[in-house]
Design a protein around this nucleic acid. Structure first.
Lengths: 373, 373
DNA sequence: ATGAAAGCGCTAACAT
DNA sequence: ATGTTAGCGCTTTCAT
């Protein structure tokens, strides 16, 4: 009645009066054992409550049958966000009663994770979730040792040595980062096209010309968006080739740069924000300053998180197919019988322009969209 | 350069010119090996890119170092929800562009899962997520074989035989279900107190008397809520001892019973809904029928999911500390050095009444709350 | 302080 | 059709 620590194949074999090989065989090739024997074994398995040890199985087969998804501290940041980010609290009514911030949850990563979960289970793989709470490297290693393939959200993943190592051992997928120097599969959105869609719309549909980019170039996504923001404006003659365009370095939590820019300089026609989260912060800051959106200035986001739809005014943005990005990750890890990649791969997924209220569109409830492949 | 399938302790040992025992020792008791040796081993580990096999380690130690969280198809249902639930689509503007339903995401389970994740990582345990996509039993077994402790959301978990088996092998936590017959730790919210808070408020603050409960009694939570709904009304003399109270059996997706009850019978003073999701559906149905909330009828929910805060009118509800439920689960699994439970345990967590708009409160933005321990 | 060796539970040849 | 057996990579006494 005490600790019934583990029924093993041996117990089952003894109970069914067969060898352990037959037990294993009954499990994996039921059709290849005699009907009678099979039933006996199956009954023993049930009676004893046999639960195969994944460790032993993994060791013997050289495969674990699991996939890993590793986030570099996004989630932890988010978790502590509602406590530590005093700047966000100014307009919050009753923060103490709700741990979740409706403006940020579910996040970009959450939606990708969701797609990843769905596809993993669909493929019969169990999912291992990791996050860098502890010493980053140790943590990613510990999860890497448990899976047949690993998808990563690299935050500031400078230690490419480790990535190179891992990529020899198993297939690796990297989100939101074009890593051409490593044999990994990078999955990104079509940031450049998305930025062009936004600018085209702002310029052509609303006749706006003086744009300002808000965001810090601390990720490949943001960098690409900003580069295209500049390049495309130059191409269509909105700014000269030598100009830098207007860049406001602001993070979601430190909106000081943004606020001071708004109060000291002339208001642009539109704030083109690097992410939705940023745009939502901008929206709230502008409200605080008594500046109306879209009447006084237009605001656009990038990502397409849920919160943007729920904001007021609803956020015009570029939506990435995040669930698709998640699913694609799993498919890539499972390709080629799970063998490691030989060379870098870049997968760019299409995006969609979501026209909502914050740019001046759809004030009567409608929502339009246009895709780009 | 090709498949570098797995650097092992042996490789490291050879490279560092020591025995495998020393390698293992260097990793687990660095202070007990000579400085010089340690450095040599550590260098080899780095150089070779050694990633310990969790399978081998787990097999040798008899512990995997991982915790599992298993959802019985909540997520799958939700995943298919936006496609298959035609009834929900009537008022959706642009469903094709957004996979997530803002009224249901994040769900009750998602928030618990979040707490579970956070606490797992905090405790240095990796997390295994499972869901019953495949043959339910096989699937839960497969994840059970990989972890040292397992938390379950039992849907209609009738196969208690399996639970009993598992509970011998490792600690088991069960959410939202009082399982007194098994040696597992059940975690529930204080449903009865929550229901009393709701009724008290409706009766005392708003003078309402004719209540109707909406929901199907298909879970322990719902059953408890409904029982207390009856018992408490009888206790305070709102209904007689022999009366059944008004029960409308309606699921989120099949609101027919609710609609027909509304159109054929007299409107009650308040719809007391068994869950927030249900309440949100009720809200939307009432809107469709041209019935105003809270002017014509009050509506209350139960759970405290995010969507209720974002609804219009904002949903008055009872909020469970879902993150806390998640964290508690992990702590319970890790107690007693991870030994299985000997006897059933019931953990009941406090709830909070969230007074918002749908009951007639806080129409000017405020939100109040009162707790019960 | 380090090495040798015995498993941990399972799979997959290989034998019978 | 079923049994024997040799690992899989690691931890852990027990020697040295």
């Amino acid at each position: 009645m005490a600790a019934d620590k583990g029924v093993t194949v041996y117990d089952v074999a003894k109970d069914a009066d067969v060898s352990i090989a037959t037990v294993s065989f009954t499990i994996h090739h039921p059709e290849k054992v005699r009907e009678k024997t099979r039933q006996r074994v199956e009954r023993s398995i049930k009676t004893l409550g046999y639960v195969p040890s994944a460790s032993a199985r993994g060791l013997a087969k050289g495969k674990t049958g699991a996939l890993g998804l590793y986030s570099f501290d996004f989630i932890i940041e988010r978790a502590e966000g509602s406590e530590s980010t005093a700047a966000q609290q100014d307009e919050v009514q009753d923060r103490e009663d709700c741990e979740l911030d409706e403006r940020a949850y579910p996040l970009y990563v959450d939606e990708i994770q969701r797609g990843f979960e769905l596809e993993s289970w669909h493929q019969g793989k169990t999912l291992l979730l990791g996050s860098s709470t502890m010493s980053g490297e140790e943590s990613v290693t510990s999860i890497a040792g448990r899976v047949d393939g690993l998808a990563l959200f690299p935050r500031d993943f400078n230690d490419s040595m480790m990535l190179r190592r891992l990529s020899k051992r198993m297939p690796i997928v990297v989100y939101s980062r074009g890593l051409q120097s490593q044999p990994v599969a990078s999955i990104m959105s079509d940031n450049a096209s998305g930025m062009r869609l936004i600018i085209d719309h702002l310029v052509n549909a609303h006749g706006l010309r003086r744009l300002a980019f808000v965001g810090r170039l601390d990720s490949d996504d943001l960098t690409t968006r900003f580069h295209e923001y500049l390049a495309y404006q130059q191409k269509i003659g909105l700014i000269g080739a030598e100009e830098q365009g207007r860049l406001i370095e602001a993070t979601p939590n430190e909106m000081d740069a943004f606020v001071s820019s708004v109060t000291t300089e002339a208001l642009p026609d539109a704030f083109v924000c690097g992410t939705d989260q940023l745009a939502l912060s901008v929206l709230s800051k502008l409200r605080g300053l008594g500046i109306r959106v879209p009447d006084d200035v237009a605001v656009t986001g990038f990502d397409g998180i849920l919160a943007g739809r729920l904001a007021s005014p609803q956020l015009t943005t570029v939506r990435q197919s995040m669930e698709e990005m998640g699913r694609l990750g799993v498919k890539l890890l499972l390709r080629n019988d799970g063998r490691p990649l030989q060379s870098p791969e870049l997968h760019i997924l299409p995006v969609k322009l979501m026209l909502r209220q914050s740019c001046g569109c759809g004030l009567n409830g409608g929502e339009r969209s246009s895709t780009v492949a």
